[in-house]
């Protein structure tokens, strides 16, 4: 019995070995792409819209609202990154309902990759928003002696992100697998439902944490009234 889908090697060629994680990631990506493509093929602003469009609008509208509430900024620059994170993790969790599907988020490699993306996204957004000088200055606060701890904090939270998601998803899958051995009838179904719920909650937690980190990196603390003015002007538009 495998803990990680990484161990399931499907194709091996010249040192490149395609394992189940990558394959199922592609599956999730393909489904996401297909849905997006289908839904956005003929978008309308009229009162009559397609169900897919409506569905995606609801999800994206909700993501926007959440991100806006957390960051207190215009959410649009962060949406592609945070939205992709959420939708990828969420769909991976959802697809566990299909027998034989191994969620790519149940692999520590995948969660590490996502956490690394978040790790690099934070300074990218921060520097883009405030400039490199202002961004790196916050490592020296409240005093220069806190800089190592700030840096360690950055790494540790990235590690926590990766391990938290991996642990939850992997445990969900593993519990079902174990229960199938012990009590094959009914109980695994309940646990699977619980696993679905946990998958969605983890998708939410991962995305919200990433949002909070990015928000803290992009927030201009010294001039709060300026933020308010920007917000006000954007809302006016």
């Amino acid at each position: 019995m495998e803990i990680s889908p990484d161990a399931i090697i499907i194709f091996k060629w010249n040192g490149i070995h395609l394992n189940a994680t990558i394959i199922f990631t592609w599956v999730v990506m393909a489904i996401l792409f297909f849905i997006s493509w289908m839904a956005t093929k003929n978008l309308t602003i009229g009162p009559k819209i397609s169900r897919w469009q409506n569905f995606l609008e609801v999800i994206i509208g909700y993501i926007r609202q959440q991100v806006k509430e957390i960051t207190q900024q215009n959410p649009d620059p962060f949406i592609p990154f945070l939205g992709s994170l959420f939708m990828f993790i969420s769909l991976s969790g959802l697809l566990t309902i299909i027998p034989g599907f191994q969620p790519p988020t149940g692999s520590l490699s995948t969660t590490s990759a996502l956490a690394i993306c978040v790790f690099f996204a934070i300074p990218i957004f921060g520097i883009a928003k405030k400039g490199a000088r202002a961004y790196f200055k916050h490592y020296l606060e409240p005093s220069i002696f806190m800089a190592p701890f700030n840096i360690i904090g950055d790494f540790s939270r990235t590690l926590a992100l990766a391990v938290r998601l991996f642990g939850n998803v992997m445990s969900g899958t593993l519990i079902v697998a174990v229960l199938l051995i012990i009590t094959p009838l009914f109980v695994p179904i309940v646990m699977q439902i619980l696993g679905l719920l946990i998958g969605q909650i983890q998708a939410y937690i991962f995305t919200v944490l990433a949002t909070v980190y990015i928000a803290s990196a992009t927030r201009v603390e010294s001039k709060p009234e300026q933020i308010n003015q920007e917000e006000g002007s954007k809302e006016d538009e």
Partner: peptide, 15 residues
Amino acid sequence: ILIYLLKRFLFNRII
């Protein structure tokens, strides 16, 4: 790649 695709085909359009 997923971010690029979704940004190109989903978020930008829908937003």
